[in-house]
């Protein structure tokens, strides 16, 4: 076991990990932040997406031990970053039904958040590309895309 410190949503966590444990596994099972989902554990579904030093990555493909010293942001931190209120993306997903079962939703929102931070006025195609590696088995892509575009409009109006 290796003792490491992870900085997740600005909080520090001391955890003991084995080298082959994924960041997704450690965040869920050892830290207890289960908003990050693990659907495939091999980088093919997008559910475990989080921001690592500001970039979206699949946390199932990242060794936890290799995330020391990184700034990790998960779905649990999104509200907090937005002064404790739902982020416009979250609000849009709620209002526009950008989900059914909700399992892909945290990953979709994280990927979309990164997109909108770098491209506040994306085209529909750019939105689809940003979530290109994410699956929604309920097939709610129409409304996921709509949620992201609507959130972008709200954010542009607000800034």
């Amino acid at each position: 076991m290796n003792a490491i410190n992870l900085k997740i949503n600005k909080e520090h966590y001391d955890v003991l990990v084995k080298p082959h444990w994924s960041l997704a596994y450690v965040i869920r099972e050892k830290v207890g932040l289960t908003g990050t989902k693990t659907g495939c554990e091999m980088g093919t579904c997008g559910s475990c997406t989080l921001l690592l030093d500001g970039k979206p990555v699949f946390s199932c493909l990242r060794m936890a031990i290799d995330a020391q010293g990184c700034d990790i942001r998960t779905i649990e931190g999104v509200e907090e970053e937005n002064n404790g209120e739902l982020h416009p993306l979250q609000e849009a997903f709620v209002q526009d039904h950008g989900m059914q079962c909700g399992f892909c939703t945290p990953g979709m929102i994280i990927a979309a958040k990164h997109l909108l931070e770098h491209n506040p006025d994306p085209t529909e195609q750019e939105v689809r590309e940003a979530i290109g590696g994410h699956l929604c088995r309920c097939g709610t892509y129409i409304r996921i895309v709509r949620s992201i575009l609507n959130a972008a409009a709200v954010m542009r109006a607000g800034s």
Binding site: G43, P56, F58, L61, G133
Partner: peptide
């Protein structure tokens, strides 16, 4: 490669 997260890694 249409998977942005993998492109980041």
């Amino acid at each position: 490669l249409n998977i942005n997260e993998v492109r980041n890694m």
